[in-house]
Design a protein around this nucleic acid. Structure first.
Length: 637
DNA sequence: CGAAAGCGCGCC
DNA sequence: AAAGGGCGCGCTTTCG
């Protein structure tokens, strides 16, 4: 550690880290590298405590196991990990504050999902992406670094090989300039030929390359068109990169931490909807038949309610002709036939039974009463966070079971009308910016459009989603006259999205969000892309147009939300609180009861600080609704 | 046979 | 004339 200090590490200075299995780690800072083969997590803790550096990693996957807390690793989410690492916020230890996730920043710059080290390296070198590394997971995620979680541990002593020839003769970069896939894998798994010293020396080299890649990414971010330099002197895209990196860290913590769920309440709630937990397979079949019976009484026993095809035919047989069987379509036919009502009830119950039933509880709620699923800091489209295990689609009925633990409260904070406010910022529409002065933005919009509030809301949402039919279409024309700057911004995005092909030889700048994230659009040289080749080209283009129109708003909103969330994450550390859920425009915090008021204030401060730089100069106001409660469902919305 | 697509729906 | 974005999940049907 003294060596690191001597080398000039200080708060915010980059320190790259590469794990080698679980008992080896290499750090790089400036022109110096260090390798450790014993208790690497302790090394990281000490460095964090002493310097608060900006941690640089190729990706949180794999590296994250080093960050797992020592004291409360009860999750199973890091099963197989030795569980030693930087302590998470809330248990009195240190949480890494600053980081740079090369994979996350790569996705910001280039779009898409691919973010393995080989792809990141190729991009910073201006090379074409190399072939994808082998997949290790059944879900299709590229997950090379995760392999270290299953790798054999490095012995701490003995087995000391020669540092030397085999390292130099087998370097990381091939003749084509690409990282050598085998080298990456061997380095991360710690399976390179030779002893501990050899393997750690390789990791040192990999850490040095991480610093090279980081510098290149930051240069690229600074060189993006329309730099939007913030009051701190830093372009917004660089701030986006930092926030997106921290969001990956937050996602990792959310996956480990889980959402508090009161199991008995959850069991009772589910039973109240679909009946008691079946004892065995026979019981399950019986319960299923009992659910189906009230509907099949009208349709006959041969109809398979779970097959849309069969259901549609069955409905037609009783005189109900529908193009599909979606519930909004059936709702419109309420009263037309006695089957509709029980069918809709069946759908709701079936949802609970299949997706959010006892099986779901057993699969995802741990013995500690925490609902856990995987989290990712950004999706492949506009960059929202995603979560598994139904964490982002928990039915309202089940939220009564999300109960704070004894001595704790939830602080629920959600951003009001974030998307239209974001639209005001990114488009620079002065009239829409004026409307954001109100707590309820739709009130002044309704006044200006001379429609009622519900119509105004539909019109605004329709403008952002690309809907033009129905009542929304009428109000949309009025929107266009009243907020021409905002609408022109959306129209421009749509035009890029639906443009099937740039003129030959002309490359257009890619579509980016306000914060600089590249929005992935398919290359369609002849008006279609491979996946949609069979579909009507105009429909395909229109669809991509709507996607782009929405993505510039949804994506920018996601960036502001995440920048806010990671700021809250930091402010919660000294208050002993934790973020337990991120829901696109809403944060759920689990905090000591006696600190709840302080957390509320800190959450507001975080929004003021974040919006202050993110929306600097726009005149746009952001508002948060913040409530304290014991149950998620009790927080007013 | 397993993988992928399509449907429908929960949430935002 | 019509044209609604994103995600994950479980089910059925179809593809290869």
């Amino acid at each position: 550690m003294r060596a690191l200090a001597a080398a000039g590490a200080g708060r915010g200075s980059p320190v790259a880290v590469v794990p080698v299995g679980h008992t080896g780690v290499a750090l790089a800072h400036g022109g110096t590298t260090w390798a450790y083969s014993a208790d690497p997590a302790a090394v990281l803790r000490a460095v964090e405590a002493a310097f608060s550096p900006r941690w640089v990693w190729w990706t949180i996957r794999g590296t994250g196991s080093l960050l797992a807390g020592a004291g409360d690793d009860r999750s199973g989410a890091d099963a197989g990990s030795t569980g030693r690492g930087l302590r998470p916020a809330g248990d009195g230890g240190t949480a890494p504050a600053l980081c740079w996730d090369l994979a996350a920043v790569h996705r910001v710059l280039h779009g898409g999902r691919r973010d393995d080290p080989g792809a990141v390296w190729a991009a910073v070198r201006g090379l074409p992406p190399p072939p994808s590394p082998p997949r290790h997971r059944s879900d299709g995620q590229l997950d090379l670094l995760a392999t270290i979680d299953e790798s054999p541990k490095l012995p701490d002593t003995g087995d000391a090989g020669r540092v030397g020839d085999d390292v130099r003769a087998d370097g990381p970069v091939g003749a084509d300039g690409q990282l050598r896939p085998g080298w990456i894998e061997e380095t991360l798994r710690g399976t390179a030929a030779g002893g501990v010293d050899v393997r750690l020396a390789r990791a040192e080299r990999f850490a040095e390359l991480a610093l090279v890649a980081m510098a290149a990414q930051e240069r690229t971010l600074r060189a993006l068109p329309d730099p939007r330099v913030r009051p701190t002197g830093v372009p917004l895209a660089v701030l986006t990169a930092r926030a997106e990196s921290a969001a990956e860290l937050l996602a990792h913590e959310l996956a480990r931490r889980g959402l508090p769920v009161h199991r008995p309440t959850a069991e009772r709630t589910i039973a109240g909807i679909i009946g008691p937990r079946p004892r065995d397979e026979t019981g399950r079949v019986t319960a299923r038949q009992a659910r189906d019976a009230p509907v099949l009484r009208h349709l006959g026993p041969s109809v398979d309610l779970r097959s849309p095809l069969s259901l549609r035919a069955g409905l037609a047989a009783v005189g109900i002709d529908v193009p599909d069987t979606r519930s909004w379509r059936l709702t419109a036919l309420r009263g037309a036939h006695p089957v509709i009502e029980p069918l809709l009830a069946w759908r709701r119950a079936e949802r609970i039974a299949t997706t959010y039933g006892f099986g779901w509880l057993d699969d995802h709620v741990g013995a500690d009463g925490r609902l856990r699923g995987g989290w990712r800091g950004s999706d492949g489209a506009a960059g929202r966070m995603t979560a598994d295990a139904g964490l982002h689609s928990l039915p309202g009925d089940l939220r009564v079971a999300v109960i704070a633990e004894p001595g704790y409260r939830f602080v629920r904070a959600d951003l009001g009308q974030i998307e239209p406010r974001v639209l005001a910022v990114v488009s620079g529409d002065p009239e829409l910016a004026r409307a954001t002065a109100q707590d309820d933005l739709y009130a002044p919009v309704a006044a200006r459009l001379r429609v009622d509030r519900p119509t105004a809301k539909v019109a605004v949402l329709a403008a952002m989603y690309g809907q033009t039919s129905g009542a929304a279409g009428q109000a949309l024309r009025q929107m266009r006259r009243t907020y021409p700057v905002a609408l022109a911004y959306l129209d421009a995005a749509e035009a890029v999205g639906r443009e099937p092909a740039a003129p030959a030889g002309v490359t257009r700048p890619p579509l980016r969000t306000f914060g600089g994230r590249r929005i992935p659009l398919p290359v369609r040289p002849d008006g279609t892309d491979e996946a949609d080749g069979a579909r009507d080209p105009e429909r395909v283009n229109a669809s991509w147009g709507r996607f782009a129109r929405n993505a510039v708003v949804q994506g920018a909103a996601a960036e502001l939300f995440k920048a806010w969330a990671v700021t809250v994450r930091q402010l919660l550390v000294p208050l002993g609180g934790e973020i337990v859920l991120c829901l696109h425009d809403e944060l759920l915090l689990h905090v000591p009861t006696e600190r709840a008021d302080e957390v509320v204030a800190a959450t507001r401060r975080a929004l003021d600080a974040t919006a202050g730089y993110w929306a600097a100069g726009s005149g746009v106001r952001f508002v948060a609704d913040i409530t304290v409660s014991e149950r998620w469902s009790d927080a007013k919305s």
